[in-house]
C-alpha cells in the first residue's frame, strides 16, 4: 500500500498505482492520474469513467466486450480514447481495481 498526494488530496493506492478506495476518488485526482498516463480528459473519457465506476459498484466484472456494447463507445473508440491498454488505463483513472479479465 502506498500513499501519494494528487491534486492536493492524499490518496492510497497499490504498487501499480490503482486506488484502493473508490471513496477517495474525485475528478481532480482523476485528471492527475490521466496526466500521468498521458491522457487529456474529454467528455467522452468521463462518460466511460462513469460507466466503469457504475459497473464496479454493481460488482459486474468488466470486459472490453461489455464496454463495447455499453452504448457509450465501441471498441475502436475505446482504444482511441485510452491507447495504451484501454481497460487498464481507464480503470486506473476511474479509481477502481485493475480488471482481472483477459477479454
Amino acid at each position: 500500500m502506498n500513499e501519494k498526494t494528487l491534486a492536493g488530496f492524499c490518496i492510497r493506492c497499490n504498487d501499480q498505482g490503482y486506488l484502493t478506495d473508490l471513496a477517495q476518488w474525485n475528478k481532480e485526482v482523476a485528471v492527475e492520474i490521466a496526466k500521468e498516463e498521458g491522457i487529456d480528459m474529454t467528455n467522452k473519457h468521463w462518460e466511460v469513467i462513469d460507466y466503469l465506476q457504475d459497473q464496479c459498484r454493481k460488482e459486474v466484472a468488466i470486459t472490453i466486450r461489455k464496454v463495447g456494447k455499453s452504448g457509450i463507445v465501441n471498441i475502436k473508440e475505446f482504444y482511441q480514447l485510452f491507447p495504451k491498454g484501454p481497460l487498464k488505463t481507464a480503470s486506473k483513472i476511474a479509481g477502481i481495481p485493475k480488471p482481472v479479465s483477459c477479454i
Binding site: A61, T63, I103
Partner: peptide, 16 residues
C-alpha cells in the same frame, strides 16, 4: 466468461 463467438472476436481484434 464473456468470450465472444469467432465472428465477433474477429471484429473485436480488428477494432483493437
Amino acid at each position: 466468461l464473456d468470450i465472444p463467438p469467432v465472428d465477433e472476436f474477429l471484429e473485436m481484434l480488428t477494432a483493437s
